[in-house]
Nucleic acid binder design. Structure first.
Length: 825
DNA sequence: ATAGGGTTAG
């Protein structure tokens, strides 16, 4: 200690000297006390100290206000901060025009997300330093004005202020949000130049930015070069992987980081859970759940909902329920997740019950709850529920919610009320593309191509930008209405308007062509689609295979089978295996159908059904029944209506009445099934063709359905057996067409029957009659022209959805082709 | 006596 220029007589301090000091403290000690109170978040106490200073006439300098403002920043206490701001203004320019205080105020308002005030104060600053710039860029980022944040960054550089490692993370975040990878790359360049790349904050936000922009290679590169990676860096990369569908990589990252001894956080576990949910990885998700328990991570709302979301997505609804019950703070999100989990599992009743419970807990439905409920109404075709939801929306001012408007349009469309769908559409003031497309989808699904086209032109008049979905829907509407040429024209127009057809576009065209009897063209479209670099999905392949069946083209069928084998991703799909069995059978190669069926270890019902149907086609009743019996012995599979239809039609083709009766009675007694109209129809057919007209009649009387035209046709046929064939056909056709003169399907049936007879004049006559009557062929019911190998063999067949008569035609055709196949061997 | 930052669920 330096010696003093004079002597001080040491005085004895009183025992309560601390109190004395408290009663007579200096400005400095006040400053320290204010400072420490503020750091502990006790701002009101700090404020009362300032009042005390005022009483004592002590000088209250700007640094005191600075400290308290800093406390308000920590606490995000807007109200107290505003009071301080007022005092500063009252104290005059010495305080209010102090650079430190001015900057601090900008930071304070920015931190409290009061963007407008912060901007006004910022604009009045005489000196803008790196701190105020960082505050402004930060608040713009947080409030979603990301473009503004980037503008700020640029302006800051232009003004010669160099962004530091506190500014860059926000700039990266803005680039990521906008997916401006090129801007981001520029920032990366600045980081390298400014030597900020070693900062873990900067590096992990760069990795995050690249991840958000979908440039995962660069995200990885940045991540790998971080000298000391913390858990946030790992999390950022992991999130990037998950957001780009690279779920496996994300899971691998979890084990890598654990190997390096980095403890996962709630963010880590949450991210892994969504990766697991996305890839349907039950084990991975359960592991993540276990890690959260082992690491003692607090089951907060976010982690809880992640776990809940995972169990809902993978269909483990009981686990989801357990998590839900154990969560303490349940918010709307929690409830929404479980509710939509129920809906995904088809547990509609539970979903509705949960909604009621949610209301009892005094939680309000939000737009997610309401759109889930609306989709329940659509799925169950429950207009009453849909209307209730819509009323709730109106009462709670959700009318302007564009997402809900779209789900309401969809709901009415699915419930068959296009008019109400249009009403919702019209009443929505601000229409977006999704809303337009939803109404367009309603028209397209019902084949209302006229309405669809009108809407399509209206969209162009209102300059709504059309996307690929719009074009796909307009094409679908045309195809559903049988306007093949118009659809092809639209397909070309779409491309010339600069929209590249996607997988759905091609598949829609292919399916529509097949449905409208243009199978050859459908195959050509498949080829063109592959040339454009797209691979067909499971549905596309089944469509292509049904085209082969319609064309009876073993050649095309085999080449598609080859494609399936080469692209192994589809080879295990039951849908495709089923289509393959069906295709080989219909193309005349029952042996190959059997081989495809036999090569599968796990057999599922559709596959059995297809094989039984194939046997039926060939009249191989023994094999069909044997397969049916072996299915009955397998406890894991239960026959369905289609199985019974297929076995019965096998009996039908073989005229095996006893077997048919046995199966018919078994289905009720053994399996507790209820025969459908089609089953009765087959039985009537069998009885009638065996000359048992009386029995057939009594079966019709005892069945719980109205008889259809076909049953009458069978009965008529059985009683007119002796007549000349063509006379019979004339008779039948009159009967059939008189019974349901407006049913276009009947015309197809009759015309196909004539086709089998080879009476081409009659086929043409039928078509003309339809034209005169203004009847249109229904979707899914069509003539398909088959060109046989022999000259002059033209057979018209219709597809499965029309009448059973088609199977008979198919059978003849299949046998014909089978003979041809055997000949060529 | 003086300032601030990145990641997560529907």
């Amino acid at each position: 200690m330096a010696s003093l220029p004079f002597n001080i007589i040491p005085i004895k301090l009183p025992s309560n000297h601390h109190d004395v000091q408290a009663r007579n403290p200096s400005s400095t000690s006040y400053f320290h006390r204010v400072s420490s109170l503020c750091k502990n978040g006790e701002i009101r106490e700090a404020l009362s100290l300032v009042t005390e200073m005022d009483f004592r006439n002590l000088r209250i300098g700007p640094e005191i206000f600075g400290e308290i403002l800093q406390g308000c920043v920590y606490e995000r206490d807007l109200c107290t901060g505003q009071q301080i701001h007022a005092r500063i203004l009252k104290n005059g320019d010495f305080y209010a025009r102090n650079e430190y205080i001015e900057t601090k105020l900008v930071i304070f308002y920015a931190k409290c997300d009061a963007l407008e005030v912060a901007e006004v104060l910022f604009s009045k600053l005489r000196v803008r330093n790196v701190f105020s710039w960082a505050a402004i860029i930060g608040v713009k980022c947080r409030t979603g004005l990301v473009e503004g944040a980037l503008m700020g960054f640029v302006e800051m550089l232009e003004n010669g202020i160099f962004p530091d490692n506190f500014v860059v993370p926000n700039v990266c975040k803005a680039c990521g949000a906008l997916q401006w990878s090129r801007f981001g790359r520029g920032v990366h360049g600045y980081v390298a130049k400014a030597g900020l790349h070693d900062c873990v904050f900067v590096a992990s936000s760069l990795a995050d930015m690249y991840g958000k922009c979908g440039v995962l290679d660069d995200a990885r590169k940045v991540f790998d070069e971080i000298p000391e990676r913390n858990v946030v860096a790992w999390n950022a990369l992991m999130v990037g992987y998950v957001q780009n569908g690279m779920n496996e990589e994300a899971i691998r990252l979890l084990s890598d980081m654990r190997k390096e001894g980095i403890e996962p956080t709630r963010v880590t576990v949450s991210t892994c859970l969504s990766a697991s949910a996305n890839m349907g990885g039950i084990e991975e998700g359960k592991q993540s759940h276990a890690i959260s328990i082992v690491n003692g991570l607090e089951l907060d709302n976010i982690l809880g909902t992640s776990i809940l979301n995972f169990y809902c997505k993978v269909g483990l609804i009981e686990y989801a329920e357990m998590i839900f019950d154990r969560m303490i703070e349940k918010d709307v999100v929690t409830w929404n997740l479980l509710i939509s989990g129920y809906v995904q599992q088809g547990l509609v009743e539970d979903a509705i019950y949960m909604c009621q419970l949610m209301r009892l807990e005094n939680l309000k439905f939000d737009c997610v709850t309401l759109s889930t409920l609306m989709s329940v109404a659509a799925r169950t075709q429950n207009v009453k529920l849909g209307k209730e939801v819509q009323c709730y929306c109106i009462r709670h001012s959700f009318e302007s919610d564009i997402v809900l408007a779209s789900t309401a349009v969809d709901m009415y469309a699915k419930c068959g009320s296009v008019v109400d769908a249009k009403k919702v559409f019209d009443s929505t003031v601000q229409k977006d593309l999704i809303l337009w497309n939803t109404l367009l989808a309603a028209y397209a699904e019902s084949g209302l191509s006229g309405e669809a086209l009108r809407l399509f032109y209206e969209m162009q008049l209102e300059s709504v930008p059309l996307n690929v979905i719009t074009w796909n829907l307009i094409i679908l509407s045309l195809l559903r209405n049988g306007q093949v040429n118009e659809a092809k024209e639209m397909f070309l127009q779409m491309q010339s308007s600069g929209i590249v057809p996607n997988l759905i576009s091609w598949t829609t065209m292919m399916n529509g062509l097949v449905q409208n009897g243009c199978s050859e063209e459908a195959i050509r479209f498949l080829r063109k689609m592959q040339e454009s670099g797209l691979r067909p999905n499971v549905f596309g392949i089944t469509v292509a295979l049904s085209a082969c069946s319609n064309l009876a083209s073993l050649h095309f069928g085999r080449s598609i089978h080859g494609y399936i084998i080469r692209n192994q991703q589809h080879s295990s799909s039951v849908l495709i295996e089923t289509s393959l069995v069906d295709m080989y059978a219909k193309c005349g190669d029952i042996n190959k159908a059997e081989r495809v069926f036999g090569s599968k270890l796990s057999r599922e019902l559709p596959l059995y059904n297809a094989m039984i149907s194939a046997y039926a086609l060939y009249g191989n009743v023994k094999e069909a029944i044997a397969l049916y019996r072996s299915l009955e012995e397998d406890v894991s599979i239960k026959p369905d209506n289609i199985t019974i239809t297929n076995v019965l039609s096998a009996c039908n083709h073989a005229g095996d009445i006893n077997q048919a009766i046995e199966i018919f009675t078994d289905m009720v007694s053994k399996h507790g099934m209820k025969p459908c109209l089609e089953h009765y129809g087959l039985m009537v057919d069998l009885l009638a063709s065996a000359g048992e007209t009386e029995k057939a009649l009594s079966l019709i009387e005892e069945m719980p359905y109205k008889p259809d035209a076909r049953m009458i046709q069978s009965l008529v046929a059985s009683s007119k057996k002796q007549q000349h064939k063509s006379e019979l056909m004339d008779y039948l056709s009159r009967q059939l067409l008189e019974l349901e003169p407006e049913n276009s399907g009947n015309y197809v049936t009759v015309s196909n029957a004539y086709a089998v007879e080879g009476s081409w004049d009659e086929v043409v006559k039928m078509r003309e009659m339809m034209k005169v009557k203004g009847l249109k062929k229904k979707p899914g019911c069509s003539w398909i022209q088959i060109k046989g190998e022999e000259e002059g063999v033209h057979v018209f067949i219709a597809n499965d959805k029309t009448h059973l008569r088609n199977n008979e035609i198919r059978r003849i055709l299949a046998l014909l082709l089978y003979d041809m196949c055997s000949d060529s061997k």
